[in-house]
Design a protein around this nucleic acid. Structure first.
Lengths: 219, 219
DNA sequence: TTTTGATTAAGTAGTACTACTTAATTTTAA
DNA sequence: TTAAAATTAAGTAGTACTACTTAATCAAAA
């Protein structure tokens, strides 16, 4: 990547479902003329489309978005082999999503609680090939021992059916209710619950919800 | 309230724990020179302090903030009898928090997914004495039948101890663990759980978490 | 076409939560 | 200082979840 200049600025696309957040990012980035926001997306699907079309240098994306979440959008961008750096920008800092983001090919993971200087520096660093993390995320990595060389952390794969059950569990539905709704046995639902908890390394609904909450597309 | 002008603009204070969101609000409001942001707060305690000091016309506040949440901050502002309009601006739209905000004396409740025009109009409307709600909130009011004349909806009061237990339950702790941590009997914890579920009209942890999530101050 | 992974489902057992009542102590506010 | 509210806690009983194993189908990829 050649050094960005005012006359040849970095092309950045931002994605977040809230106008306020997009406006905030625009404002924080507006002070550096070497960075130019060429488009915005308000959900993961839009993001994949605009990235395919514009071929930006850097993408800043939220995780929790309707239609398609940021991590799944990232996966699609990587599948399409579009050459760009992708930084996740999220309010949720937990090792599960951090790992999933890295697994999906994220080049950075920043908290939304970041100031203009840090955000701009992160963007300028990421195009040099560095992986960028905000301070709180670094603390998380140290505490939880998340590997930043993504592939050695066992990828947690939740199947379609499991996701379906997880969503219902997170809404407070009982196994009985879920079984009736999906026309399967209560014991099957219990099996799925058990497998989900194994995969996510938790032992009850409350913890399960912590991990499910970002997966949900807004209802 | 006299009509705001460029030379005599509305004094507004905004509160949100994320710099990006504050920057976003600044940007959205920057297009109307009749509105001036005179200060910002990044938590509820800061908000109460700056509102006491500056005596603004309008306050725009997030709900989930560290130290003191937006609703409790609003209560303190009302207790101090500071004459200003307060609009809650939040990503979470549920009847529980809406009711609590109204109960605490909010003059409006807006989704963070709002554009510049709507936000500015809401501010200009609220100083005329109108109560303002964003479209999605209006839908919620209609669906759930939340009363906008706040006082006839039974106020849901969660006590300090209950909140403490709710936080631990939401983290996935068992009653046994909570009991040991707080040096009380398991049966007491169970009583609190039961009372909480009664108050919030739910019947299991998952639903409880849905309501607790905003109450938590960021860890 | 074979093997892998997903989905289904049951057995067995223990643990934890939920539902409601009643009531004794504290604490707090009027 | 007294009434009201909060916190404590136990009884009784039922329901739901969690823990782990085994295994039969079924669909899809190699």
């Amino acid at each position: 990547m050649i050094e960005p200049t005012e006359s040849n600025p970095l092309k950045v696309i931002i994605a977040d479902d809230h106008e306020i957040v997009r406006a905030g990012i625009r404002r924080l980035l507006s002070i550096d003329r070497r960075i130019k926001i060429i488009d915005e997306a308000e959900n993961g699907q839009d993001l994949v489309d605009t990235v395919s079309y514009h071929q930006p240098d850097v993408v800043l994306s939220d995780i929790m978005m309707p239609k398609l979440n940021g991590i799944d959008a990232l996966k699609k961008i990587r599948e399409k082999k579009i050459d760009c750096y992708v930084i996740m920008l999220t309010a949720y800092e937990d090792s599960f999503h951090l790992e999933n983001a890295l697994e999906a090919g994220a080049d950075g993971y920043l908290s939304k609680d970041i100031n203009a200087r840090e955000l701009i520096d992160s963007i300028l660093d990421v195009i040099k090939g560095e992986r960028v993390f905000s301070k709180s995320v670094v603390r998380l990595i140290q505490k939880k021992g998340v590997s930043t060389s993504e592939l050695d952390s066992t990828p947690v794969v939740i199947t379609k059916r499991e996701q379906e059950i997880l969503d219902l569990v997170a809404k407070g539905k009982t196994s009985q209710y879920i079984a009736e709704k999906l026309f399967i046995s209560v014991r099957t639902v219990e099996s799925h619950r058990y497998n989900l908890m194994q995969k996510l390394d938790v032992s009850n609904v409350a913890e399960l919800i912590r991990y499910s909450i970002l997966k949900r597309t807004t209802e």
